[in-house]
Amino acid sequence: MITCDFAILPVGTETTECKDYVTAAVQSIKDSGLSYQLTGMGTQIEAENLTELYAAIAKAQEAVFDVGVGRVYTVIKVDDRRDLENRTLDAKVDTVEKMLE
C-alpha cells in the first residue's frame, strides 16, 4: 500500500480564499475511487501503485487549473512501503495511538 499526503496551492489568485480550488481537487480525488482523507492542511490518499497515485494527483492538479488559475504549486509526500502488507493511513495512526496508551 502506498500512502501519500499532498497539497495543491493556487498561485496568483485575487483573494486569499482557497475553498473553490480545494473542493475541485478533492472532488477529483473522490472521483478517482481511491481512499482519501481530507485534513486541514492537505489531502491524504492510498493507492496500490505509483501509476494510479500520480494519475490521481495529476487530475486533481488539472481540476485546480480548471477553476481558473494560471499557476499551481504542488507538494507531494509519498510513503511506498513494501515490507509490510496493508499499511493504510488508519493503520499508521492506530500504531502510534496504541503506543500512547
Rank of each mutant, 00 (worst) to 15 (best):
I2M: 05
T3F: 00
F6W: 11
A7F: 00
A7H: 08
L9R: 04
V11E: 00
V11K: 01
G12L: 01
E14R: 11
E14I: 02
E14C: 07
T16L: 11
T16Q: 13
T16W: 06
T16Y: 11
D20Q: 14
Y21C: 01
Y21R: 04
A25S: 12
V26W: 10
V26N: 10
S28Q: 05
K30I: 08
D31W: 02
S32T: 08
L38G: 02
L38A: 03
L38R: 07
T39A: 06
T39P: 01
T39W: 02
G40V: 01
G40E: 01
M41W: 03
T43C: 10
Q44I: 03
Q44H: 06
Q44V: 02
E46Y: 05
E46T: 04
A47C: 05
L53P: 03
A56K: 12
I57N: 07
A60T: 09
A60D: 03
Q61F: 00
E62A: 15
A63K: 05
A63H: 05
V64G: 01
V67C: 06
G68R: 08
G68T: 11
V69I: 11
G70M: 11
R71N: 06
Y73K: 11
Y73M: 07
T74N: 04
V75Q: 13
I76D: 04
D79F: 06
R81V: 06
R81C: 02
D83A: 03
N86K: 15
R87L: 15
T88D: 02
L89H: 05
D90E: 15
K92M: 12
K92F: 02
V93A: 15
T95L: 15
E97M: 15
M99D: 13
M99P: 00
